[in-house]
Amino acid sequence: MKNIKQWVEDCRNGTESYQALIDRVPYARFLGIEVVSRGEELYFILPSKDTNVGNPTLPALHGGAVAGFMEQAALLFILLEMGEPRIPKTIDLTVDYLRAGHVRDTYVECSITRLGRRVANVHISAWQVRREDPIAIARAHFLLSE
């Protein structure tokens, strides 16, 4: 079976899609995460899906599903940002919920605040209508183990 370094290599040279890489993660498929690449830039989408609904009266997306989407997007983002890919492990994740997540498509953007030798600090933003109005922002640390 192909190891993770080979996968990342294949995604970079275009012989595999980033979607195929994220589809290896059962939980990413459970949420229904999609990845779109434009050159080397990645966009993460959580398409509207009944199984991700939390509050049935509003209705609204489940905050946990949004958090899981943000965490998984960041995991893939760091994996691809490292020259020599290593599997990141989540140390901690802190999510601030700013607005109710409506039952519609959600987008996530990640930026690495600091990529150290052992630990990465990542900022994650989730939005639905426009990126200036995020529904949630998050900060996470990931352990970059061998």
Binding site: V25, Y27, G63, G64
Partner: peptide, 24 residues
């Protein structure tokens, strides 16, 4: 559950699923 797995090589539940569970 198989579909909550985060790393297919280890079969561990994804951190996101634990987050959603606790949030609930």
């Amino acid at each position: 559950q198989e579909r909550l797995v985060g790393n297919p090589d280890t079969n561990m539940i994804h951190g996101g699923a634990i987050f959603a569970f606790l949030d609930q």
